[in-house]
């Protein structure tokens, strides 16, 4: 059996699954790792919610420009063919179904594709949603990048989300250290298990897997 996947291996796997020519939004946090594995020569175009298509890598040294940042407010560079637009246009691109793929982090994903990634529901937590809800319902394919099990060992792939939802039935794939889970109308299909057998993962998640 292969070992569990590292974050970099997961990011590389997501990058491999992004089709040539796709318009892609990478959520803040772990999903930004995917950019390191994307061959932009393949014509993949990165969208950032704060109003840019054709976003490049993180800026270094003299390239840093406070007016040119990504959704995580990190300075980035332009790529040839880049364009800028205002926020209403940027989110129209999402809602209007013009983005092919977005990659988001998650607290929980349910077997029907429900996504919870914005609020733990804790009474003292300050709610902050940003663009997560727009991305979740807007992109043609929503990929989630997360650990399959939380620090407490509980499965984050669940029958039904217990955290407040970000979007309903919107996730198509979940990329984890134990492999890629495809959310299908016929149930959850594990592409290839890593670091555990299918039966062990069924046992630990309490979910029927194919």
């Amino acid at each position: 059996m292969s070992d569990r996947l590292t974050k970099d291996q997961i990011a590389a796997m997501i990058a491999d699954d992004i089709p040539t020519g796709a318009f892609v939004n990478l959520g803040i946090g772990q999903p930004t790792l995917v950019a390191d594995h994307l061959d932009l020569e393949r014509g993949v175009v990165l969208h950032t919610e704060n109003g840019m298509l054709g976003m490049g890598r993180a800026a270094v040294g003299d390239e840093v420009d406070p007016d040119l940042i990504n959704a995580g407010k990190i300075p980035v560079v332009e790529t040839p063919g880049a364009s800028y637009f205002h926020h209403a246009d940027s989110f129209a691109m999402m809602r209007g179904g013009h983005l092919d793929v977005c990659v988001l982090g998650a607290f929980q994903v349910a077997v029907n594709g429900d996504l919870a990634n914005w609020h733990t529901g804790a009474p003292d937590a300050i709610p902050a949603v940003g663009g997560a809800m727009d991305l979740a319902i807007g992109a043609k394919d929503v990929f989630v990048m997360m650990t399959l099990f939380g620090k407490d060992g509980a499965s984050k792939l669940v029958r039904e989300c217990t955290y407040p939802l970000t979007g309903v039935a919107c996730v198509s794939r979940v990329y984890t250290e134990h492999g890629v889970f495809e959310i299908t109308p016929a149930g959850v299909r594990l592409r290839e298990p890593y670091g555990a057998t299918l039966e062990e993962l069924e046992d630990r998640t309490g979910l029927p897997l194919r």
Binding site: H87, D134, G138
Partner: peptide
């Protein structure tokens, strides 16, 4: 939600009384 925030202001500026959003 960020897109609704932008669109709600766009609607105000464009004289739209309200809109239905999937977000």
């Amino acid at each position: 939600p960020q897109g609704n925030l932008a669109e709600r202001m766009r609607a105000a500026g464009a004289g739209i009384g309200a809109f239905f959003s999937p977000t």
